[in-house]
């Protein structure tokens, strides 16, 4: 137990953390899955992210939005997993059976095709697409999360759209 916090503030910190988890856990799980292309790994990444979030909650000063902050931590966790020894040996061929079962009546063929196309993007392009189109973050925020120049984010998004257009046989994501 941390001894430097009064019980009241500890309670408030817990409450705040629970709210963050409730707000972001589902979308974060899906983002991590699309990044790592593995359900178990994605669950581990979400857990690892929230452990880091909880421990750093007091030092979060609000310089960026909480979503940007959490995504920054999550991307770092996913990146580290992506560079772990054994991940490199995994079969990287993306197949439909890698996808978890969808809730009954929710997904159609086109949804699956688009999901697989995103998973087949090279990692850096996938990161940019997920943060921009799925998480709805701004180019500036993505640049901060990925520690790259603003223009690199735009370049990656452009290349990702082109690549998706190829993968989707002509259909393209609107800018």
């Amino acid at each position: 137990m941390r001894q430097d916090m009064a019980p009241g503030s500890q309670l408030s910190r817990e409450k705040r953390f629970e709210q963050l988890a409730q707000r972001y856990q589902e979308t974060l799980l899906r983002t991590c899955f699309l990044y790592l292309c593995d359900k178990t790994l994605a669950e581990d990444a979400v857990q690892e992210t929230f452990v880091k979030v909880y421990r750093a909650l007091d030092s979060f000063r609000g310089d960026s939005s909480e979503k940007t902050w959490i995504m920054k931590i999550a991307m770092r966790v996913c990146y580290d997993m992506n560079h772990s020894n054994w991940y490199r040996l995994m079969n990287r061929r993306i197949t439909p059976d890698m996808l978890p079962d969808a809730a009954p009546g929710t997904a159609n063929e086109e949804d699956e095709e688009l999901t697989l196309a995103v998973m087949r993007l090279p990692r850096k392009l996938r990161e940019a697409i997920l943060l921009y189109y799925y998480q709805g973050l701004k180019v500036d925020e993505i640049a901060e999360i990925l520690h790259i120049a603003h223009s690199s984010v735009s370049g990656r998004l452009k290349r990702a759209r082109m690549k998706l257009k190829e993968l989707l046989e002509g259909r393209e994501i609107d800018e």
Partner: peptide
């Protein structure tokens, strides 16, 4: 060519990954 809007993109991923359910007890365990 057919364009896919940002909303459609997001809903396609959400629909197909609707089976991925968050661990309800994670925050408490942490």
């Amino acid at each position: 060519s057919e364009k896919i809007s940002m909303d459609r993109f997001r809903s396609a991923l959400d629909n197909r990954l609707s089976g991925l359910r968050p661990d309800a007890g994670l925050a408490q365990r942490i």
